[in-house]
Computed example of a mutant assay.
Amino acid sequence: MTTALTNPPKHGHKSLLYSEVVSLDDLTAADIAVLGIPYGSAYSMEEVSNDQSNAPTAVRQASDRAVRSLERYDFDIGGPLLMNKDIRMVDCGDVIADPRDLSSSYRNAEAAVRKILSAGALPLIIGGDHGIPIPVLRAFDDQEGPITLVHVDAHLDWRDEVNGVPDGYSSPIRRISEMGHVKDIFQIGIRAQGSARQEEVDIAHAYGANIITAYELHDAGMDAILERIPAGGRYYLTVDADGMDPSVMPAVNGPALGGVTYHQARKLIHGLANKGRVVGMDIVEITPAKDINRLSSIAACRLFVNMIGATIKAGYFDR
């Protein structure tokens, strides 16, 4: 008997950007697979089910504000969403978690991503908090070649533990840095204060993390930052909503002024898709109750639109 790893998407738009709703057992010929991972590794009981767990549904609900219909021309990507190609884009729903076994969310998430990768599909992940990339990146351990992690965030996320929890939302980059299949790390948009202390900054530098503050980004421009990322790599992009400027994604618990603009994020996505191969992407830390006119969820959809369009135009799914 097979135990399900995901629940179908919820009410309203039941999928991201009109994609086909499927189970993880129906990924044949899938090119792009959407997966919601609502639950992280909580630091307290209050965080077990916080409002960020509603973000996968909120982002899906914004689909018709981000893309009015699939056949219309999109000037951000230079054509309709699927570029008039035979692309199978599916939505696998949300990873199931057991309230009596809180670690089940990460185990199920890793297993779900492994299924997506085994099917040869590009995973697009909607969190959930920023602990989510930990199980996602674990699933890449048997893929070919090292991964370059590209991280958009206001915060460093190199804590070893918080409240005895080693895999929560303050620790994803620390945990990912320990994975043998991850090599270079680029952290873009870092600014203000998060959980990092001097010791975490020193550890990140000792690892060789490329820490690019928001101010360096604004002064140098995204083209210059892209030039620093080695070409021909296999890139995983993780976007914390608070890495974006609050004018773009206001629905965050820790808004920090001076963040990454939509234009810069779009340029980063297209640049990565064209200089190597993007192997996955997530957007995390959206807190829907704090959104303004659904702007954050619409922006998340638009970032996914750019990734979908850029990878299709780059020939990722040509047969």
Rank of each mutant, 00 (worst) to 15 (best):
S23H: 04
L24S: 08
L24Y: 08
D25H: 11
D25S: 13
L27W: 06
L27Q: 05
T28F: 01
T28N: 11
A29Q: 10
A29T: 04
D31T: 01
I32T: 10
A33P: 08
V34P: 09
G36N: 05
P38M: 10
Y39K: 08
Y39Q: 13
Y39E: 07
Y39P: 00
Y39F: 15
G40D: 11
S41T: 15
S41Y: 09
Y43D: 06
Y43C: 05
S44C: 07
S44D: 08
M45K: 13
M45P: 06
E46S: 13
E46I: 08
E46P: 01
E47I: 07
E47A: 13
V48M: 08
V48C: 04
S49H: 12
S49W: 11
N50G: 10
D51P: 02
D51A: 07
Q52N: 11
S53H: 04
N54I: 10
N54P: 02
A55M: 03
A55V: 01
P56G: 03
T57S: 13
T57C: 07
A58F: 06
V59Q: 05
V59T: 09
R60I: 10
Q61C: 04
Q61D: 12
A62T: 10
A62K: 14
S63I: 12
D64M: 02
D64F: 03
R65K: 15
R65E: 02
R65N: 07
R65F: 00
A66N: 03
A66K: 05
A66G: 12
V67S: 03
S69K: 15
L70V: 14
E71R: 12
R72A: 13
R72W: 14
D74K: 01
F75V: 13
F75G: 06
F75A: 15
D76V: 08
D76P: 01
D76Y: 07
D76A: 13
I77G: 03
I77H: 05
I77W: 04
G78L: 07
G78V: 01
G79H: 11
P80T: 00
P80N: 13
P80D: 09
M83S: 10
